[in-house]
Design a protein around this nucleic acid. Structure first.
Lengths: 238, 238
DNA sequence: TTTGGGGTAACTGTATACAAATCCACGACC
DNA sequence: GGTCGTGGATTTGTATACAGTTACCCCAAA
């Protein structure tokens, strides 16, 4: 990957966005470990831009929770946010609440769109079941399918505000999911059943049930993940 | 008010924050009308700082939804976000979901804290009832009490992430509430009863009920507000 | 009177120089 | 040997100059 050229080639007003996306990618995929210090000048040099667009990207990452300021001093020293069990639980509950609202709206969608969505979700979940059933499941594929399942509801049914919020928070859950997906692969079958509940509720237009089903799915996921984290240990704390 | 001196006196690393807070205050209180253009140079001059901290403040306001970019062009021209019925409904539902999660946690609080919170909420709601019962209610006082009622749950029971999210979204609901509070004063009694439901659920430690009660409260508030907006007309659109 | 085009003014994006504040290491003194 | 202080290096915060783009205004022509 050659970030230098990407950022340079970017048109004027996209530079902060490009830097933001690249950094986020690095954080989510763990290439920037929790606790790492982010130095403006280093980043600027690395992407071949000045500190100005870098500042924009960092501020956004900070506001969205990907990076935090070192606790000690008044002058802010941004570091990659740590991954802890408590944070995971809170984060998953929040994402669950937001996606639950989407599901609520999805269940109230007018008829042609709703059936289409249900069909789509059913297909994805079936694929997910098949992928999980194989002897050595492809973790990346599992994650992608699960991701798409949740994403579709939001894309179709959420309003602009909800979409914005979701897109800024969801990737942070991705940090945890990507790290622990190998440990979580064994817990797929309850998740599959929960997805079926969601689909059924949306199909019959039962908004309250759809909402509750999504909340359950995420709350259970938080519990499963929390247990795994406690077993394996936190990252970025000691 | 003399913003010049405020921003100047602020210590180095607080300047963007001060500008942010002042601008947000102006927007929330309607002194900056929906659709107004925000020009970096003007703001910088007004607060007697350079464009750099102003940019930080604007970026934050944009990300939180207080300002939007003029629809047409690639270069961003920030304007104060319009107020519409649809947006109000979506916004209130989101805030409701977040506060519902807080209430859920509040109902699971360990014992000394929970009783204290319940007592506090009961007092506030009683004051609210008294204030609403007087012949010519003080709208500002009504709003403050209602605000405090909702705020306490979050302060006591929410985790750091939830608090952060809430503090960035809630003031946007405030924009609507402050504008329409005079029209909404007549609808206080259902809201009072809904508050009582919340208090009762937390008191008996019924987390699910507390969550549902908060969601109902906000969803109904969204409906009441939506009707008022449709009657009175949107702001910032025509 | 309205519409189209060109030119100018205004505003934002970027880069960079400078100032202030913190951290780190080294050394002196107890 | 340990601890505290001081000086330099590092890094962020701020201001400002410059470049590129957009919008607006004015004037001419239909």
């Amino acid at each position: 990957m050659t970030p230098r050229r990407l950022a340079r080639a970017a048109t004027r007003s996209d530079r902060p966005k490009v830097v933001y996306e690249q950094l986020r990618e690095l954080i989510v995929h763990g290439r920037l470990a929790p606790g790492s210090r982010l130095v403006e000048t280093d980043i600027a040099e690395r992407f071949a831009v000045s500190r100005t667009p870098v500042r924009g990207a960092l501020q956004r990452l900070r506001q969205e929770g990907y990076i935090v300021d070192s606790p000690s001093m008044r002058q802010s020293r941004p570091t990659v946010a740590p991954l802890t069990g408590d944070d995971a639980r809170e984060l998953f509950d929040i994402v669950g609440q937001l996606e639950a609202l989407s599901a609520y709206n999805a269940a109230e969608l007018p008829e042609p769109a709703r059936t289409a969505l249900v069909a789509e979700l059913a297909t994805i979940n079936a694929d997910l079941g098949k992928a999980a059933g194989t002897p050595r499941p492809d973790h990346n594929r599992l994650w992608n399918l699960d991701e798409r399942f949740h994403e579709r509801c939001v894309e179709v049914a959420a309003g602009p505000r909800l979409k914005l919020l979701h897109s800024s928070i969801k990737p942070q859950a991705e940090r945890y999911e990507r790290l622990y997906v190998s440990y979580l692969a064994g817990y797929m079958s309850p998740s599959l059943a929960e997805h079926d509940d969601i689909i059924a509720a949306i199909r019959r237009g039962d908004a309250a049930a759809a909402k509750a089903a999504v909340e359950r799915n995420w709350h259970n996921a938080a519990e499963r993940l929390g247990q795994v984290i406690e077993r394996v240990g936190d990252w970025g704390r000691w």
